[in-house]
Design a protein around this nucleic acid. Structure first.
Ligand SMILES: [Mn+2]
Ligand SMILES: [Mn+2]
Ligand SMILES: [Zn+2]
Ligand SMILES: [Zn+2]
Lengths: 143, 143
DNA sequence: TCGCAATTTGCAACCACTGTAGATTGGCAA
DNA sequence: TTGCCAATCTACAGTGGTTGCAAATTGCGA
């Protein structure tokens, strides 16, 4: 995702308005590595702008995703997770608490389906490592 | 997933009953490579057993997944997809129609997060190739 | 400053899935 | 073979995540 300032220009360029709600969401996403859900972002937004609606958060996230500024990830954690890091990277997912961490995976780019793409036109592969984060593994240990 | 006959024994062994509904679902899944959703399986089941309930389909799928006979996949296609192939393999996903195809990916097993597992205890990695299947690519071409 | 298309909000609706309870039944014991 | 009863099935309500809609509001180019 580009910076809030650059996004402001990009939105205006598309005939989209730059509202205080959108600017707030730009700021909340800028540099955010937590892979937040819409609900989590809404909670953070509401703290700074009481009255903002969840619907507006969804709207803006969808706009950003459509513009390619945001990746929407479905990792089996219940809700979609939004990722302002649109560069080449992969994910660690805690199946207990839903935490998501970025990882680089050398060699992932070269991965290819054995026997060819089966007629598919393919994007770059995405590697998901599921497991238990240290907090959840510790909690399980203690019990 | 094991064969319907073997599953019958496995269910009885766990104190679970083998009902006509469950047997039908076993058969519908046996050798099924379509990665069906619960709704799709329900439609197929209803055709052979009018009156079967969607709830029962979900129940049985959850039981099979809990027993490790089935993998539940979250591929961002709306609903969970169920996979009787629990061996080591990966997936091609059409972002247009939701088609899922099995692929083997040599080298996938050895993939590792650069810089270590970050404190996570990890399962085997899962590689997802998103793209457009030949049918959907053709349809886009023609339009 | 004005006008209006874009946006926001509130709320209903939708989809995938789960909880519940009463009716039904598979499968063991007698 | 029958009877019992825990397991199951179905119907339906409820939940969580997300989208559709319409009336009120507002950013921003003219
Ligand atoms: Mn990420
Ligand atoms: Mn598969
Ligand atoms: Zn965790
Ligand atoms: Zn397709």
């Amino acid at each position: 995702m580009r910076s809030p300032t650059e996004l402001t220009a990009a939105f205006r360029g598309r005939g989209l308005k730059v509202t205080p709600q959108r600017q707030l969401i730009f700021r909340l996403l800028d540099g955010n590595t937590a892979h937040p859900s819409a609900e989590i972002l809404f909670a953070a937004a509401e703290a700074q702008m009481p009255g903002i609606s969840l619907r507006t958060v969804y709207q803006t996230l969808n706009d950003l995703a459509e513009m390619g500024e945001l990746n929407q990830l479905d990792l089996g954690t219940g809700a979609s997770r939004f990722d302002p890091n649109v560069g080449d990277h992969h994910h660690l997912v805690c199946v207990d608490c839903g935490a998501v961490r970025d990882v680089h995976v050398s060699g992932a780019r070269q991965l290819t389906p054995d026997g060819g793409p089966q007629g598919f036109v393919l994007d770059a592969p995405h590697v998901i490592f599921r497991g238990h984060c240290s907090e959840c593994a510790d909690a399980a240990q203690r019990s």
